[in-house]
Amino acid sequence: MEELRVVFAGFGGQGLLFAGKVVANAGLIDGREVSWLPSYGPEMRGGTANCSVTLSDEPIGSPLIMNPNVLVAMNQPSLVKFEEAVVPGAKVFADTSLVNRLPQREDIEVFAHPATELAEDAGLKGLANIVLVGKVLKETALCSRETMEAAIRKAVPARKAQMVENNLQALELGFNL
């Protein structure tokens, strides 16, 4: 299977690190090589946060993704920051609730959905991250539905177990977009 290099980018508080953790857990369940790296440093304080998740069938070199083949952008600055970095043929997922200018490149596939609003409308406030994970799953087939659901159960900490159901609904919502 092709190496998956996903960057989740947006504001702190949008659950980007958690979304990355869900995808990383999917890789773990499938027995693949996995790395998850949060951004930290000045950009953490400048309003944007991101995390790099790599799933591969070979040992992973640098966990810091310079050229993602999947980008999940949950705000405008993040899209601007990574737009040029994604490889040709990359799949870019934009939350149009917060992104109003989409990439102009023609060598990439763009999936634009108002994930934040869709989540809120469905009573899943704060789960736009997982809505987008659902859409990523559908478009990339990075793993099976069962694996991703199991990954959500694994990633949600025990003390927040009541959140599992909402996360699964968000996944479903995104998958059906």
């Binding site: 953790k21 990383a24 890789g27 773990l28 090589e33 996995v34 790395s35 998850w36 790296l37 949060p38 930290y40 992973i60 966990p63 810091l64």
Partner: peptide
């Protein structure tokens, strides 16, 4: 280093 310390892997 900070990268190895803060990254997650199986």
């Amino acid at each position: 280093d900070g990268m190895l310390g803060q990254m997650m892997e199986p």
